[in-house]
Simulated assay, not measured.
Amino acid sequence: MTGGLESALAEASSPSWTRRARAGRDLASSADVPEAAEVLLRLLLDAEDTAVTRRTAEALARTGTTAAVRLMALALVEADDSRSDWLRTGVHDARVAPDGVPDVVEACGKLAQDREESVRRGAAEISVWASGTSH
């Protein structure tokens, strides 16, 4: 594991919401690394602060990989209504950014064939958010 990844993994357990949110942003590009994926899922469902949920979802949406979107789909099926609203807001924030999130819809399409029904369900909802047809 690289020093940057280890540092971000450590930051994810900080009592500071800003440090946890930064960890989510820093780990997003490593969504396919099992240790990072586990921590990212926890950050998406952060019990302490919805800003962590929002910023981590935005970072994952900007990454746009299938692994990143899969984590958001898994979080979505576990999230309560409030948390799912903040997940959607994070995707929206990424979508309206100048560079947008063109890969998210494509990743959701790939996840439509995932072996887990919950991932397929979550990805279908995220696809709607990312395409801008609902918010």
Rank of each mutant, 00 (worst) to 15 (best):
A94R: 05
R70T: 00
A21V: 00
A79H: 06
D93Y: 04
D93E: 08
R42I: 03
V69M: 04
A28M: 07
R20V: 03
R25F: 01
T66F: 01
E38Q: 15
D93V: 02
A112T: 02
V91E: 03
V96Q: 10
L74E: 11
A75Y: 00
R88L: 06
V39H: 06
P34K: 15
A36C: 12
D93N: 12
L44D: 08
E116I: 00
A12T: 02
E38N: 14
D32W: 13
A75H: 04
R115W: 00
T63F: 03
L45N: 06
A23D: 05
D99Q: 12
D114G: 05
L60R: 12
D26Q: 13
V104A: 09
G132Q: 03
T66I: 06
A112C: 07
S13H: 10
M72E: 04
R55A: 06
L43V: 06
G3K: 14
R121A: 15
A61F: 02
L44S: 12
W129L: 07
T18E: 09
D32Y: 04
R83C: 02
R83V: 09
R55D: 05
A61N: 06
A12D: 08
A31G: 13
T53S: 10
S134Y: 10
R121F: 11
R62W: 03
R88Y: 01
L9K: 03
R22M: 07
V119I: 13
T50D: 09
A123F: 05
S82K: 15
T56H: 07
S16F: 03
T50I: 08
V119G: 09
V33P: 11
R20N: 11
L76R: 13
V39L: 10
V105A: 15
S13K: 15
